[in-house]
Amino acid sequence: MFEAYPAYILNGLLYASLLFLLSSGLNVVLGVLKILNLAHGSFYVLGAYLTTSFVALFVATGLPIYLVYTQILVAAAVAGIIGFLFEPTLLRPIYKREESYQLLLTFGILLVLSDVTKIVWGLGAKVAPEPFKLLGSFTIGGIPFPYYNLLVIAVGFVVFLMLWFFFAKTRTGKIIRATATNREVTTSLGVNVPRIFTLVFVFGCFLGGLAGALAVPMQSIFPGLAMEMLILSFVIVVIGGMGSLEGAFIGSIIVGIARSFGIVYFPEIELAILFIIMIIVLLVRPQGLFGRRE
């Protein structure tokens, strides 16, 4: 029985990696712009759909197949660019408004994007299996495990390190952190805050799209997934702490492993386990593991 544990842990880390990428996009927007982007799940979906289209196109051109992985990055980048369409036009007017309006506006964007994906890619499920199949699998503890899953875990970890380095050490990162802490003072110091906001929003959408792009070769994508993904990212943001990068990382790992072992030992609990963890965290330490109380 215990020989399966490495596989269970790897599965947990796999799920954690996707959750981390997804929720860090939401987190970074929340921390800097102080907006909870309800449409964030839509960018995950967009990233996934774009990957299916780009991979299909790439395979058709007959270029060397191992370069297909670039399509994942391309799809994520395009998701970010789509975010760029929304921020200056729709979001900027409402930064000064009441919170509920921001939520409602992003909810409207969620609805619109849901139908746009239906119109563009149709109603059925779409797949992009080539990146997944290409790498094959190995056995661990007597159970086969695909190499692609290891790739996803690695990407999640690398992104975490890069983000941490970016925010802690680089100049732009520090400027962004300053903007998050105090908008007015930063403006008075001569920083172009609206431009920072746009940059951060686009980056958040890119991360969400990257999560979708990495996930779709393993699974499939169909309309209606946006709300699910949004709720998952909420849960991680709450558990880890709003605006906290380390929190999102640790929180994702906790949720990923809990879910993986939960399915094994308590199969009935899968539906509710995320929310139970979320309630416990909110009751015991509402600012999350690494968050700060406002």
Binding site: Y8, A215, E270
Partner: peptide, 21 residues
């Protein structure tokens, strides 16, 4: 082994691993 997946679940890796084990 028993696995109950929620409707619309896309990630089956844990289910598959559990059953194979």
């Amino acid at each position: 082994a028993e696995v109950w997946e929620k409707v619309g679940e896309v990630d089956h890796s844990t289910a598959i691993t559990k059953v194979l084990a």
